[in-house]
Design a protein around this nucleic acid. Sequence first.
DNA 1: AATGAAAAAACTCCTGT
DNA 2: ACAGGAGTTTTTTCATT
Lengths: 168, 168
Amino acid sequence: MKTFQASEMDETDWRILGELQADGRLSYKELGRRVHLSAPAIAERVRRLESAGVIAGYGAKVDAGRAGQPLLAFLQLRCRPADCLLRTTTAEDFPEVVEVHKLSGEHCTMLKARATSLAHLEGLIERLGVHGDMRTHIVLSTQYEGRPVERQPEDRPITTAEGWSGRT
Amino acid sequence: MKTFQASEMDETDWRILGELQADGRLSYKELGRRVHLSAPAIAERVRRLESAGVIAGYGAKVDAGRAGQPLLAFLQLRCRPADCLLRTTTAEDFPEVVEVHKLSGEHCTMLKARATSLAHLEGLIERLGVHGDMRTHIVLSTQYEGRPVERQPEDRPITTAEGWSGRT
DNA sequence: AATGAAAAAACTCCTGT
DNA sequence: ACAGGAGTTTTTTCATT
């Protein structure tokens, strides 16, 4: 493992990252053509990004709807600590849950789940509900998902009330 | 484009889908070895999944944290219809927003956003806030994300109160 | 980092079952 | 619908500048 900081990534690295997120099967040759670098130069940069863990792997993007799971929902769970979902169950118990995040705030967990039908979703909610209070948000439509991670612009100045400015 | 239903996917198709989601760069030969099929047979199945849109593409998986964006937040927005986010802005205005979903319920939109720092996140929230009420959920840690879409088990029977059973 | 050549690997076609 | 093998193309890697 290399010590490689995100801050060391130059514009070319970000372009490579963008291209590879859009098409993970690009050859070094084609990738080089797009970012104006030779294949060996590309190969070295990609290997560096991989060994630094910036590129964690490559995967097929599956359209869940076309794979028979058209329903998407966000479920906020406020567990009873005694039998919190994260302590008493395992990922295999809920194959429809595709993301699990621990949250700040009153709801301890945010789940993202896919289901084949409303009946399926209903059953899932019922199975999850025993672990605590739940707030369900059914997605009507998705504008976009899986947007590539890209370079962020400089932090913009934050408007601060004059009387409360942090340090002068 | 073929008329290809998700219901026609057999166990082998699901295994292929699983392997390709885990590693989108597998060769047909290696993929065939794993699911016990020859390379030509695999190639045909993969092409069928691609042209049916079940496989929407291939991409590099980027570790946002290692790419300099360690912060993740879910933002629920209840827009004023007049200047709803989805009507008055474009994706380029908010590169930190990686997902946009329209929701049922009182909050019309669920956003997922990544930021480089708390100051950055603060600025983002401020810029988004002008479009309506917002509820912010900062992710403390992510248990998992990007779980592969997999075959769902049969719908389990839903417990129904006797006196309210739908049809008898 | 670019170029060019050698080596390796992948894909596809074809035939047979 | 699938397996096996040969041929062809592409990709990767190495040496050199």
